[in-house]
Design a protein around this nucleic acid. Structure first.
Lengths: 357, 357
DNA sequence: ATATTTAACGAAAACGTTTTCGTGTTGACA
DNA sequence: TGTCAACACGAAAACGTTTTCGTTAAATAT
C-alpha cells in the first residue's frame, strides 16, 4: 500500500529542492530542460498528482460546490443534481451533497458543516420547515461570510442571492387553459398548503386561468392537502380524501394537480369510481417525473426541466465564483456588481400524453 | 462581507499566541481559566469555526466519503445515497457525489478527481461499460493508494474490498416460487443481457426456482432486453418487443421481470392485449420503486432495501477508516486484518400488491 | 579586466490548524 | 537563600502546495 507521492519525496529522491520540482511540473522555464524532463518522467512514473487539500488551503478555494436539498429520493431533485453535477464536472468542480430532510435544524447544521471551508458556494432549495418558520438567518449568515448562494425552485425574497425558478404561475395557467380549451367546464384543483411558495403560485395560476377564461372559481373544487405528513407513506389517506372530494363534486370534468403524485392518485381514484380518463375527466399534473410517463393512462404534465434548472444554477454560481476571482484583482472590492443578483426563470412546457384529449 | 475569522486573527486581537488560542478553544488546562474564558468568549462572539481544509491537511484525513454511481435520477441509487448520507452525517462525515453516467471513462476521471486527497474512502457501484470491458484497474489503483473502497449492488470478484449486495439470486427464487404457488404454470422472464451481474443472478434465480418446482425451463419464455440503449427514452421499442413476446407466447400466466420498468411496461402491454392482471397474468418485478407503488394495478415487487444498503456501506467504510487510525498506532502496519474483506448480503423481501393473487 | 545580465536553482513564506517542546515566572520547600 | 515544581504561555514544526525573492555561477557586455 503506497501512500500518494508528494513533491517533497520527489525532491528528495532526485536531489533537488521542492520548488524546483513544483516549477518543473508546471513547465516553468526557470528550470532547465534537463531537470524538467527528469522530474516529469519521475513524476509520471510514480503517478504524481497534486494533493487537492493542499491546493485548496493555499488557493483559499476548494473547487467544490455544495448542494443542499430537502430530499434526494425524488425525481425532480435528483434531476437537478444531475444538471448541477454535469456542469460542475465540466467546469472542474466537485459536488458535495447535503440533505435537510425538510428539517430546519438539519438545514442549519448542514450549512455550517459546508460553510467551514469545504465549499466555495452553495446551491440549495429551502426545506418546508424553514419556509414555515420563515427564518432565513442561516442563509444570510453564510452569504455574509463571502459564500455565494444560488437558490432554486423553493426560493424566498428575504434572501439576496441568485435564484433559478420555474415559472410556476404561468405553468399552471397554461395547464388550466389547456383544460378549458379541451372543453372542461368544472375544473378542480388539488394543491398543497400555501406556505410552500411553489404550491401557492400554482394555485394562483389556476385561479388566473379560470378568470381569463371567464369561469368563476368555485372553492368547492379546490382540495388542499396537508403535506406536512409524509404523503408517500400515507397513500390511503390521500386517496380517501380525493375520493370524498370527487364524490362531493361529481361534476368535475377536468383536474389540475400541483404534483404528479396527486394527479396519479386522483386518476386511480377516478377509475375506481368508474370514471374513464380522459373521456369523463381530463387530468394534468405538475412536475414531469417517472410516474407521469408510466402511469396508465400516461399523464399530461407541466415539465419543470429540472436538469436545466440544475445546469443554470451551477453556471450562475460558478460564474459568480470566478467573477470574484477577478474582482480581487480590481481596485474596488465592493463593486456594485456584487449586489446585482440574477433571477433566472425557466419556462415550463406542457407534455401531452393520454390523460388529456 | 466578513471573511471567516482565523486563529491568527483572534491571537492578534487578544494579544496572545496562536497556540494559546488553539489550546484555549480545546479547553486545554495548559491555559489559565482567565485567558480561556476571554478567548472562548471572543471566539463565540465572532462565531469562530475551525477551517475544515486546514484540519484535513493537518490530520491527513478529510472526513468526507465519495460516492460514485452510474446514475442519480434513479429510485434505487438515490435511496442508497440517502442511506449513506444518513449514517455519514451521524458519524461526522460529508458526502461528495460523482456520476459515471454508466461510462468507463467518466468513472475513471471521477475516481482520480476524488482520489487526490478529497476523500478518505469511496462507496461505488460499477458502471455498465466497465462491467462490459471488465477493466477494473482503476479500482485496484486507488485501493493501493490506501483509499478503501466499498462496492454495492454491482460488484465484482476481481476487486478486493468490502461489498454490500442484495441477494439477487434468492430474491428471484422467492419471486418465482410465489408465482408457482399462486398457480402459474407458464412463467415468463424479462431480463437484461448477462454482463450486468445482477441481471444474470436474477435470471439464475428464475431458473433455479423453476427447477425446484419441477417445471422445465422454456427458453421461449425468456425475453432478454438489450439495455445498452437508453430504455427510458425508447419506451416504444421496449413495448413492441414485449408485445411480440406476449403474442408469441399466449400461454404465459405469470411474469417475473428483473426491474420495475420492465414489469410495469409489461403490465401496460398486457392490458392493451386485453389481459387482466392478476387474473390472466400475475406479475412480479424486482426493485421496489415509485412505479411499483403507484402503478395500476400496483406491482408486487422484490424490495432491495436500498437505504439499508447505503447505511451498511457507509458503516462498513467508516468502520474501516477508523480502524486504520488505530492500526497506525500498532506495531504492524500490514496486519492481516487489512485483507479480511467483508461481504454483506441484504435479504430481499417480497412486497405483495395487486399484481399477484 | 570589470561590470552586468542571464540561467538555474533554493530558501522561505503563506494558507490555518494542532501539538510538541521549550521558557520564563511564580510559589513552595529545604 | 537557593532549588525545584507547577503554571502559563510562546515558538516552531508539520501537513503539501505555489510563488516570491534571493543567490550563485556562467555568459555577455563594456
Amino acid at each position: 500500500m503506497k501512500r500518494k507521492i508528494t513533491l517533497k519525496q520527489i525532491a528528495r529522491e532526485l536531489d533537488v529542492s521542492i520548488s524546483t520540482v513544483s516549477k518543473a511540473l508546471s513547465n516553468s522555464k526557470e528550470i532547465s530542460e534537463d531537470t524538467t524532463q527528469k522530474i516529469q518522467a519521475f513524476a509520471k512514473l510514480y503517478n504524481y498528482k497534486a494533493n487537492n487539500i493542499a491546493l485548496s488551503l493555499k488557493n483559499r478555494k476548494t473547487k467544490t460546490i455544495g448542494i443542499l436539498i430537502p430530499e434526494i429520493v425524488h425525481h425532480f431533485f435528483s434531476t437537478v443534481i444531475r444538471g448541477i453535477e454535469r456542469v460542475a464536472n465540466r467546469r472542474g468542480y466537485n459536488v458535495i451533497v447535503g440533505l435537510s430532510n425538510e428539517s430546519f435544524t438539519k438545514e442549519i447544521i448542514n450549512m455550517e458543516m459546508l460553510a467551514n471551508g469545504s465549499i466555495d458556494g452553495i446551491i440549495l432549495s429551502i426545506s418546508k420547515e424553514t419556509l414555515l418558520k420563515q427564518d432565513y438567518h442561516h442563509f444570510n449568515a453564510t452569504i455574509n461570510q463571502g459564500i455565494p448562494i444560488v437558490m432554486f425552485d423553493r426560493v424566498v425574497n428575504e434572501v439576496d442571492c441568485d435564484k433559478v425558478i420555474v415559472d410556476d404561475f404561468n405553468g399552471a395557467v397554461k395547464a388550466v387553459k389547456k383544460l378549458v380549451e379541451n372543453g372542461c367546464k368544472n375544473i378542480a384543483l388539488i394543491t398543497t398548503m400555501d406556505y410552500v411558495s411553489v404550491g401557492r403560485l400554482r394555485t394562483q395560476g389556476y385561479l388566473e386561468a379560470l378568470g381569463l377564461s371567464g369561469i368563476e372559481a368555485n372553492s368547492n373544487l379546490i382540495l388542499k392537502i396537508d403535506d406536512s405528513l409524509d404523503v408517500e407513506n400515507h397513500l390511503d389517506i390521500l386517496e380517501t380524501e380525493i375520493t370524498q372530494f370527487f364524490k362531493a363534486n361529481p361534476n368535475i370534468d377536468g383536474l389540475f394537480a400541483v404534483n404528479e403524485l396527486y394527479a396519479v392518485s386522483a386518476m386511480k381514484v377516478a377509475r375506481k369510481l368508474g370514471l374513464t380518463i380522459p373521456d369523463d375527466m381530463q387530468v394534468i399534473g405538475f412536475t414531469d417525473g417517472v410516474l407521469s410517463k408510466h402511469a396508465t393512462p400516461s399523464l399530461t404534465t407541466v415539465s419543470q426541466h429540472g436538469q436545466k434548472m440544475g445546469e443554470q444554477s451551477a453556471n450562475l454560481l460558478i460564474d459568480r465564483l470566478e467573477a470574484e476571482d477577478n474582482d480581487n484583482e480590481q481596485y474596488f472590492t465592493n463593486n456594485p456588481k456584487d449586489h446585482d443578483f440574477i433571477k433566472v426563470v425557466i419556462e415550463t412546457e406542457i407534455i401531452e400524453r393520454e390523460s388529456t384529449k
